[in-house]
């Protein structure tokens, strides 16, 4: 594993700056494993990040080209960047649940609508942890956090019949998966498919925050106990009860079924230049 870090991660950022025991390290490694297993080199990937734990801890870790966007806007930036990059270049974004599903959700939905070729890996630590632990839209109902001292009450997007990935499916995303970082190689396999999809992919990767969610919601910093809580709550079955479990797996795979945005736009522009004029893509 250290070979993987040496291969892809800048020495100044190895080891990283995440808290001791933070599941983000596992999440980060899953992405690197997927890249490695796909045989991608440093120059094959451009890596973007958002704000929050996931953004701050993974920004400029990638040895190749890398950027960080303002909070929630990295999907819009990636849309512009995608038009400039060669199609074969893989564009991977590591962002948080707040970045993707709340402040940046408008841009995420529109990137899905356009089917822009990027892989958004949502490192989901079940709330706003870099600001000290406040509930978000993936925080399990009833969780005690610093902004929900009596238990999280506000409806979220993962329970009560909601599934944020289903909204993305309806918005046009062509690959969607959800895993926890404690599921061994399964997330890596999904990440590989996501990265290979020439379109808009989202992989929600749930990981334990020891420092805030562990202490505030689970009442412990004990890694074994926290991992147990996650494992007990994880279902390999997508049809399991989402009110009590993280339902995991590939929720939608329509890779290659829609025209990728940049490719479509290039074709459209070429057709206009050829004097077709009506701009219809063939």
């Amino acid at each position: 594993m250290s070979d993987l870090l040496e291969k892809y991660v800048r020495p100044e950022k190895n080891p990283g700056t995440a808290c001791k025991g933070c599941g983000l390290r596992l999440a980060h490694r899953k992405v690197l494993e997927a890249i490695d297993e796909l045989g991608l080199a440093q120059g094959d990937v451009v890596w973007g990040t958002g704000i929050g734990c996931s953004g701050r801890q993974t920004f400029v870790t990638w040895k190749g080209d890398t950027f960080a966007g303002t909070h929630g806007r990295v999907y819009a930036m990636a849309t512009g960047l995608r038009l400039a990059l060669p199609p074969e270049k893989r564009l991977i974004l590591t962002v948080g649940d707040g970045d993707a599903f709340t402040i940046g959700f408008l841009h995420l939905l529109n990137a899905a609508r356009r089917n822009v070729d990027m892989t958004v890996v949502v490192f989901d630590n079940l709330g706003y942890q870099s600001t000290g632990g406040q509930y978000g839209v993936t925080t399990p109902l009833g969780s005690k956090t610093d902004s929900s001292p009596y238990g999280a009450w506000e409806p979220n997007w993962t329970q009560g019949g909601f599934d944020v990935l289903r909204i993305l499916k309806e918005s046009g995303a062509t690959f969607l998966a959800r895993h926890t970082v404690l599921q061994g190689h399964e997330p890596v396999e999904s990440l590989k498919k996501a990265i290979q999809n020439r379109g808009f992919s989202v992989v929600q990767l749930i990981y334990p925050c020891v420092t805030h969610y562990g202490v505030q919601a689970l009442g412990t910093r004990d890694l074994a106990k926290i991992y147990d809580w996650f494992r007990e709550r994880t279902a390999d079955d997508l049809s399991a009860d989402a009110n009590t479990h993280f339902t995991t797996g590939i929720t939608h795979d329509a890779s290659g079924s829609r025209v990728e945005f940049a490719a479509g736009l290039r074709q459209f522009v070429a057709s206009v230049q050829k004097g077709v004029g009506n701009g219809e893509t063939d």
Partner: peptide
């Protein structure tokens, strides 16, 4: 060249920024 209609102005300038760093 490429013309895009963004979801809002915030996205519009971010798309421009993204294109520019490309």
């Amino acid at each position: 060249g490429y013309y895009l209609q963004a979801e809002d102005e915030n996205a519009a300038l971010h798309i421009c920024n993204g294109g520019s760093i490309g």
